[in-house]
C-alpha cells in the first residue's frame, strides 16, 4: 500500500512540476482581431495527399502571403464535424471552411445561426429545388465547386494522343454521379482528338469502399492493359494505387487524379488531373481579406485555375511538344466557351 501511494505521489509531483513548463514558441491563445481563419478537415484528415492536404496547402499559402492566422480542426468522429465548425464560429473566426461534401448540412445550419461569420464548403453539395434549379446557399456561405469534367477532358485528350492505341482506359471508384462527371469529361476529351477510339470504363464498386480497394484497382487495370490499353485514367481514391501498381508491372502508363501523383509510380504516371483545392481555399481567404466575400456558388474550372493537368520536369519527357500544343489549344477553346464539356453521361 505504501509503495503504491509513493508511486502515485511521485508521479503527481512530476506532473505538477511539468505544468509550469513553458517551452519557447508555445502557442498562446490569440486575440481575435486579424484575419482569423478556421479550417475543419474531413475524417480522413491531413496526410491524405489529396483533398485535405490541398486545403492545408492553400491555407498555409494564405498564412504566408496574406498574413492569415489559421486554426485547424481534425474531427475524430461524425459529430465532431459540427462541433469543430461551431467551435471556430463561436470564437469569432472571419471565415470557417469545411473540407468535403459531407459538411454540407452542418455548414448550412451554422451559416444561418452565425450570420456574422463567413463560411465556405469545399465540394459543397448544392441541393436542387423542386423546380430543377439549384438552391442558393445562405448569403454568408460560399459553395466551392470544381469542374472536374474540364480537367478530365484534357487528360482524356492526352491519353488518346500519347497512348498510341485505339483503346484507352478509365477506372472509377464508386459508381456514382460524382465520378460519372470525371468519366464523361474524359470520354469527351478522348473522342475530341480520336473519334474512332474506344474508352474502356470500369468501376471498382457501388459503395464508398470502392475508393479504398487497391487490389480491385490493380485487377481492373491489368485486365484493361491486357486488352490493348496503354493509358488508364483513374478517379478512384486509393484504389488508384493498384492502377499505378499495374502500370509499373506491365510497363504502361496511368493518369493520376486530384493531386500530382507522379511519385506513386515515377516514370509511369503520364500526368495527373489536379483539383486545385488549394487555389479555391486561398481565393476564399483572399476575398475575406479584401472585404469582398459573398455567399453563393463558385465554380472552379480551367479558367479559374481550379482544375488542370500536370506538366513539369518529371513528365515532360512523356508528353511530346505537339501533344502539349494541341492540349493547350483545347484548353483555350474550353475557356473561351467554344467547347462545352459534358458533366454527366
Amino acid at each position: 500500500m505504501r509503495k503504491l501511494s509513493v508511486f502515485i505521489g511521485a508521479l503527481l509531483a512530476v506532473h505538477v512540476a511539468l505544468l509550469f513548463v513553458h517551452p519557447a514558441g508555445a502557442a498562446v491563445p490569440t486575440v481575435r482581431d486579424g484575419l482569423d481563419i478556421g479550417v475543419v478537415f474531413d475524417l480522413g484528415g491531413r496526410g491524405d495527399k489529396s483533398f485535405n492536404d490541398g486545403a492545408y496547402i492553400g491555407a498555409e499559402r494564405a498564412a504566408k502571403q496574406l498574413g492569415a492566422r489559421i486554426r485547424y480542426v481534425e474531427p475524430g468522429e461524425g459529430s465532431d464535424r459540427e462541433a469543430g465548425l461551431r467551435l471556430l464560429a463561436a470564437e469569432g473566426m472571419k471565415l470557417v471552411i469545411g473540407v468535403g461534401f459531407i459538411f454540407t448540412d452542418d455548414l448550412t445550419a451554422l451559416a444561418q445561426e452565425y450570420p456574422g461569420v463567413a463560411f465556405a464548403g469545399v465540394d459543397f453539395a448544392v441541393t436542387v429545388g423542386a423546380d430543377g434549379n439549384p438552391e442558393p446557399p445562405p448569403n454568408n456561405l460560399a459553395a466551392l465547386k470544381f469542374r472536374e469534367e474540364q480537367g478530365s477532358f484534357l487528360v482524356g485528350a492526352i491519353a488518346a494522343l500519347v497512348g498510341n492505341s485505339k483503346k484507352v482506359g478509365f477506372v472509377g471508384g464508386m459508381d456514382s454521379p460524382l465520378i460519372h462527371k470525371f468519366e464523361a469529361g474524359y470520354r469527351a476529351g478522348v473522342k475530341e482528338v480520336c473519334p474512332e477510339c474506344e474508352v474502356l470504363v470500369q468501376y471498382a464498386g457501388v459503395t464508398p469502399d470502392a475508393f479504398r480497394n487497391p487490389g480491385r484497382g490493380k485487377e481492373l487495370a491489368l485486365s484493361q492493359y491486357q486488352q490493348g490499353v496503354n493509358v488508364i485514367y483513374h478517379a478512384s481514391g486509393s484504389t488508384g494505387l493498384g492502377v499505378f501498381e499495374a502500370a509499373r508491372t506491365m510497363n504502361k502508363l496511368a493518369i493520376g487524379v486530384d493531386a500530382d501523383q507522379y511519385h506513386e509510380a515515377p516514370g509511369h504516371v503520364l500526368t495527373s488531373m489536379v483539383k486545385r483545392v488549394d487555389n479555391a481555399v486561398f481565393d476564399a481567404i483572399l476575398r475575406v481579406k479584401e472585404h469582398r466575400f459573398a455567399g453563393g456558388i463558385y465554380n472552379f474550372g480551367l479558367a479559374e485555375d481550379g482544375v488542370g493537368y500536370v506538366y513539369d520536369e518529371h513528365n515532360r519527357a512523356l508528353i511530346p511538344d505537339d501533344v502539349r500544343a494541341r492540349v493547350e489549344a483545347l484548353k483555350a477553346e474550353i475557356i473561351a466557351g467554344r467547347i462545352a464539356v459534358p458533366s454527366s453521361r
Binding site: F7, L11, V14, H15, P23, A27
Partner: peptide, 24 residues
Amino acid sequence: LVALVVALVAGDLLIMAYGQSPGV
C-alpha cells in the same frame, strides 16, 4: 487512479515534445 497519473505524465511529455506548455 494509477492509470490517470501515468497518462497525465505521459501527456505532459508528449505535449512538451510538441513544443507546447502542458499547463496551457
